[in-house]
């Protein structure tokens, strides 16, 4: 037993390597949101397509919905856009958009060019609602339950894997 003592530094070193390897795989940009499990921050915003119509958080109470923060200037949003369109086609969950720090014309043009997966897009010109939702990069996606509580947040573009293995089961569970 005592003979094996020289292996201790090696074990410590391997432990360190293990930590560093795991650390390499983590994404430092994914900051856990303190809003998960909390009521969705209130908003009262005009619709992108019709400034005279407003939408409030309360209007969405009682159903499971998804908020997708996007913008016409955001390249990563283009990547996930086809996935959103497909989600809308399959009616997995009603998707609401938050057009973040955009111009109305550019936002509408993006939707007419690439398809509009949103039940409605809210227009957050100055990004104030974005701050309330803790948005720090676009795109970001939230799942909100029937009681108006945020249950999940995804930072960065959605992937087929995230939709199939995280969003779909969660929505099923929340609707069930």
């Amino acid at each position: 037993m005592k003979k094996l003592k020289f292996l201790i530094p090696l074990a410590v070193f391997l432990g360190l390597v293990g930590f560093l390897l795991v650390g390499l795989g983590l994404n430092p940009r994914e900051v856990p949101s303190p809003l998960i499990g909390k009521p969705a921050p209130a908003f009262d915003l005009p619709r992108l397509d019709d400034p005279s119509q407003r939408l409030r958080t309360e209007d969405l109470r009682g159903k499971v919905w998804m908020l997708n923060v996007w913008a016409s200037w955001c390249a990563a949003c283009r990547d996930e856009h086809p996935l959103l369109v497909e989600m809308a086609r399959q009616k997995i969950v009603p998707i609401y958009g938050l057009d973040y720090k955009d111009t109305r014309a550019a936002g509408l043009q993006t939707l007419s060019r690439f398809g509009d997966p949103y039940v409605a897009s809210l227009f957050d010109a100055d990004g104030r609602v974005g701050i309330d939702w803790g948005v720090y990069g676009v795109p970001e996606t939230f799942i909100i339950d029937k009681a108006g509580v945020i249950r999940m947040k995804h930072i960065g573009p959605l992937t087929p894997d995230v939709i199939r293995n995280k969003i779909e089961p969660l929505v099923r569970q929340l609707n069930g």
Partner: peptide
């Protein structure tokens, strides 16, 4: 700020 973005 911490309510929105966490202790981070």
């Amino acid at each position: 700020m911490t309510a929105r973005y966490g202790d981070f």
